[in-house]
Design a protein around this nucleic acid. Sequence first.
DNA 1: ACGGGTTTGTAACCTATGTTACCGAAAATG
DNA 2: CATTTTCGGTAACATAGGTTACAAACCCGT
Lengths: 214, 214
Amino acid sequence: MLDHPAKYLTKFSEHFDPTLLAELEEKSMLMEVKGGDVILNIGQNIRAVPLLVDGVIKVSRINDEGQELLLYYVKEGESCAMTFNCCMLTQTSVIRATAEEDSVLACIPVSFMEEWMQKHPSWKKFVMTTLLNRFTEMIKSIDEVAFKKMDERLINYLKEKSRIADSSVINVTHQQIGNELGTNRVVVSRLLKKLENENKLLIYNKQIKLLKDL
Amino acid sequence: MLDHPAKYLTKFSEHFDPTLLAELEEKSMLMEVKGGDVILNIGQNIRAVPLLVDGVIKVSRINDEGQELLLYYVKEGESCAMTFNCCMLTQTSVIRATAEEDSVLACIPVSFMEEWMQKHPSWKKFVMTTLLNRFTEMIKSIDEVAFKKMDERLINYLKEKSRIADSSVINVTHQQIGNELGTNRVVVSRLLKKLENENKLLIYNKQIKLLKDL
DNA sequence: ACGGGTTTGTAACCTATGTTACCGAAAATG
DNA sequence: CATTTTCGGTAACATAGGTTACAAACCCGT
């Protein structure tokens, strides 16, 4: 638990009006998570809506065999639509949120959701926008796996990773890429080599550098 | 336009309380669509929320190359979450709703959405349930394409089709199956033969009959 | 019954991807 | 420094699924 939430909540000042910000400061609890930590497995009950104050959260689908598929990232100043939606979800289906790096969450008890939706237009707008964005990203995920080949998916993955890390150099093992794309490490290595030959990226020192014409 | 909406709206009486039903009868417009008709391409603006009064609607993703992927069906007494969500969606992404059979829609101008969400708890609950269901179905779609092989996807497709048509006999060309699964007709024919050899279904007279141990 | 369109069966082939195995390099650990 | 673990490169192979082509069966209108 952190001492001075107000400092963090400025990340949301462009979305939220001052009265909402004040209420948020009063009623939310800050939580720190370390990179790699599993924040929640959606599928069980959720008692708090998390706003991401700092860091990056990775949201993935985990199927019954434990295979992973990356769905999208949540960045600071955003939230996760799943938790808006799925508070009462009972199925076996699991969506897992993992801290991609050290992160700070502002947790809002779900009991405030209803009230705020009515009271704060900016909260309502935020929720709606978030829902819409996540929905769009779900469609994108479906597109990727349904219509695209692995090399293109890998390229998109790297671009996204680069965008999130805010760097053209990416530091991630082939194994991890394989996990997040739901494929095999060998396939990833093969395709990375191919892309290197096509001058779309450079591999050195176990890092991947994206080139401009990727 | 049909004469007696009240008769149709009984489909919703289990979800909606009487005052909502009355308002629905007053303010919605009934629309008939013929099987095969495209009802809407979500991606442009939507000015009305459709409730499905009679029939079955197929909802698919259509990618940039025009390839289709079946997402889910909407049955009578349900609605389509996409339209709740995506009223303002601007992207190129297209979700297409097609009448699977002759159907009747009750269209509610979107302007009533807000008001009803506040005024009618049963409307709010309906919208939330619908959102949740569709969301779950999106996850299922992702699972299918990300983790399952074509034979299993075909089986699930046939089961779903059978459930929707309420019959163990399915009447659909291999080409159409291929379209809806986003694959090739030859692949479908091949797999259907394989499943027939495994005694999971019968093919006769260009119809497909599912057997119990499918 | 004839002819043209549609649907299905099937073969032959190709490519993408999954799988296993093994080696060497690099990194971590003691 | 020595040992162990992790990671990446690569080969060899298996399989699913996409592609093309063509013929047979069927459907329908005249």
